[in-house]
């Protein structure tokens, strides 16, 4: 344990380096020629770098946390419209996940509202759209099996419903994957910051103890360096 290599650059999957853990302060300072101040300065630099990365990642995390529900909502609407469309065209409804667990109750309901459903699907889709905060206007949507997806950069593209759902699903999966990675990185950085804090405390305490034990060593703080020779 004592003779651990000092600079082993282990990286996490996104290339964030691991902080070196100071296992034995005597040994560690010893190899640095007793330059306590230099060591502490270096620790502070490393900590600052980690903190910078942490800040960046926290912002990314925030952006993703806002983006994911957005995509989820859009996807929800698109699947809803796709289901309506399928029904209007008389296609058998792809009852995806619903067919699972409580199929029993669903079946009964499906039997009950089958007819009415078809009727409803044939009617145009009436909606209330938000024009502005607290202001809604009624709109009737002419369904043509396509939706416009806002792609950003002032661009909207028309997609067939199925394709739109596919695109949104893949975007959603991507965003979720990104988020888990960012969270992983944040946890990793937190860990390294803790290690650095502990390192700092250890070296500092070690230094204090040494100064105290060195007779009359209080006049000069640089004394540590000379003594180590």
């Amino acid at each position: 344990m004592a003779d651990k290599p000092k600079i082993e650059l282990e990286l996490n999957p996104r290339g964030i380096p691991k902080a070196p853990f100071v296992d034995n302060v005597d040994d560690y300072i010893g190899t640095k020629d007793g330059d306590v101040e230099g060591v502490i300065k270096k620790f502070q630099e490393t900590s600052a770098k980690y903190r910078y990365m942490e800040l960046n990642l926290q912002q990314r995390r925030k952006a993703l946390l806002a983006k994911i529900p957005d995509i989820e909502q859009t996807l929800g609407v698109v699947t809803f419209m796709a289901a309506r469309r399928a029904k209007a065209l008389g296609e058998p409804e792809p009852e995806e996940e619903d067919a699972g667990s409580d199929a029993g109750s669903d079946d009964i309901d499906a039997l009950l509202d089958g007819e009415e459903d078809e009727e409803a699907a044939a009617k145009p889709l009436t909606t209330l759209f938000e024009l502005n905060d607290t202001l809604y206007a009624e709109a009737t949507v002419k369904e043509n099996g396509q939706v416009g997806l806002w792609l950003g950069a002032n661009t909207m593209l028309m997609y067939p419903l199925a394709e739109a759902a596919e695109l949104l699903s893949s975007k959603l999966a991507g965003a979720r994957k990104n988020l888990t990675e960012v969270v992983e990185d944040l946890e990793w950085i937190r860990e390294q910051v803790t290690v650095m804090e502990v390192n700092f405390a250890r070296v500092h305490n070690w230094d204090v103890k040494r100064r105290r034990s060195a007779k009359g060593g209080e006049e000069k703080s640089l004394m540590g360096e000379k003594e180590a020779k």
């Binding site: 609407v77 619903d98 509202d113 409803a120 909606t127």
Partner: peptide, 26 residues
């Protein structure tokens, strides 16, 4: 029923709204 999906409200028949609700709850 005016059912909120995303940012807009959709006018749904009661059975359709129930169905959508079941999906969302699940």
């Amino acid at each position: 029923v005016l059912y909120k999906l995303g940012e807009a409200f959709f006018s749904l028949s009661l059975p359709a709204a129930k169905k959508q609700l079941r999906k969302d709850t699940k």
